[in-house]
Write a protein that binds this DNA or RNA. Structure first.
Lengths: 321, 321
DNA sequence: TTGAAAGCGATACCAA
DNA sequence: TTGGTATCGCTTTCAA
């Protein structure tokens, strides 16, 4: 009816009828049923499915914040899925969320189960794979090259003169960005004549306490470790607290390197050696690419938002280096 | 048609037809359109709208994780809204999300704009207000009594012998739980014969760096402050780092008290004086209450998940106390 | 400028 | 055990 035209401000009605319609809208407390609109078929929903591994790792909380703020401002809603780093969880979430006819999907990571890939390809909606930069994505991609970021950190620590280096992170069933980063790190250390004395992958969340007890484990088995690289700054801070509790001075006795340049880093009395990654911007960029595509604007399919090594003062240039 | 029955496993069809239907499902890569199901009206959607102020404050990231994990496991999806602590953002998000016919809403905070209240009452769906415990909620509520938690901390610090006490937190346009907490804190301090030398409410996110520079500001204007209470542990840690950078020893020169018992607390070499709040459980409980209501199971309408003061060692019992 | 009719996909109901 | 018919709220198309 005419009411529909008025509500959509389509034009083609008199001011008189407009007022009459609006009056009834107020009187009845009418709220449109967008389900019916989408269902009618000509317009798409404003849902964007967003999959995130977990929020205990602050890195992902920041990415999600970047995504949702931007989407919200542009009139879209995030339908969240915490996939807990497993492809099975992701697949089941994808199946469900697709049945709600989302306008698009933003997925963390580049690995998906075979069935998930099939569904994604058939969905015919924009898809942005984030986090792990991917030059041949399903559709679009924004992230950083984790292998390179790990490699750069490895090379930096080698250049500082460290040779016996440990790694402490978390692992999940799936090869993920952190694993890729570790691989790059190991390659650089070995290329440089160093040795990764231990690659510790805990089955836990990448936050403070696992960094603490992971360091305990690592030092128990490899007491001659000169420097430790962590999956992120939160773990690195946990590790640094363990070291201090044992009387190990940083960086005199042991070097500590984090990753991610998290909000805690700037307040520490010693600047944490880390890798800056623009998390918030990464999320915002993903949202922008999605919206641009939905608005039929031209979009670059792949964006690398880059990283930057922060030398800090928790590792030191060794005398012999 | 018969296909619908097969897909819903309703029974009343032969094995033969079932196989024929499933074959076509596979061949066509058919995915159901749940929009149409809900639209048809006989079943409700599996969307739960979840409003959260921001994710930069780790407290809320944990609450959201608790909610989404539980909802996801029970077959529901969170539609996220980051309301940035403003009632206007919340109102506009509520309007939008209601138009998608969610099965229910989980809202952070007990304050809502007048229009929001009207929409919520008319929506006729379950609503859980979380965070700030509310014995007369719109519908259901789970949280803690923030006034009391602030009061208890104030009394504790008074009992430790502190008299000139500062507060560092953030503020937003809206009276929120942190404001209530501060009010309880101030009341206890004043009742106990102490003085809140400064109530610093920064326009910023409640995280590390604002704690750092907030402390700088507070000490610049009130140099004789004996102890500082912070909005949360992240701010408190930022503050403690500022103090240490200025050579102030904790707790010998100044006492530091946080709130929330965040994941960083257990790894610190001095246990942070704080207030434990079961964030994850709070989120899970909210999700459980929602699901119970949707399943027509009996539900307690109001739940107080409680808090627990952690004495820690960043404040000390003063000699004269 | 207004309204009547058809259809989107799934399901409830009833008839075959 | 199967399938035709009406329905949900909205939009598109076409006629008045």
């Amino acid at each position: 009816m005419t009411a529909s035209r008025v509500l959509r401000e389509e034009g083609g009605y008199s001011e008189d009828t407009r007022l009459k319609v609006m009056e009834q809208v107020d009187r009845l407390g009418y709220l449109p049923n967008r389900l019916a609109t989408v269902f009618a078929g000509d317009t798409s929903s404003t849902f964007i499915g967003v999959s995130i591994p977990d929020l205990g790792n602050e890195v992902f909380a920041q990415v999600l914040e970047g995504i949702d703020r931007k989407l919200g401002r542009l009139g879209y809603q995030s339908v969240l899925g915490l996939t807990q780093h497993t492809l099975e969880e992701e697949e089941s979430w994808i199946r469900t969320v697709l049945s709600w006819q989302p306008a698009g999907l933003i997925l963390t990571g580049r690995n998906h189960s075979k069935k998930a890939m099939d569904m994604l390809r058939n969905a015919g909606i924009p898809i942005v794979e984030i986090w792990d930069f991917n030059s041949s994505p399903l559709d679009m991609s924004v992230g950083i090259n984790h292998f390179d970021s790990g490699f750069d950190m490895g090379r930096y620590l080698i250049n500082c003169g460290y040779r016996k280096i440990g790694y402490v992170g978390t692992s999940h069933n799936t090869a993920n960005a952190a694993t890729t980063r570790m691989a790059g790190f190991v390659e650089a250390v070995e290329n440089g004549g160093g040795e990764v004395v231990k690659q510790l992958c805990l089955h836990d969340t990448a936050t403070y306490y696992p960094g603490f007890y992971g360091t305990e484990q690592l030092l128990a088995s490899s007491g001659d470790t000169e420097c430790i690289f962590y999956q992120n700054d939160a773990m690195a801070f946990g590790g640094s607290q363990y070291c201090q509790s044992k009387g190990l001075r940083i960086p005199e006795h042991i070097g500590i390197a984090g990753w991610g340049d998290l909000p805690i880093a700037p307040v520490l009395t010693s600047r944490m050696t880390s890798m800056h990654v623009p998390h918030l911007k990464l999320g915002q960029t993903a949202a922008e690419m999605m919206i641009a595509r939905l608005s039929n604007e031209p979009v670059e399919n792949c964006k690398d938002v880059g990283f930057r090594l922060i030398p800090g003062s928790t590792v030191r240039r060794l005398p012999e280096a």
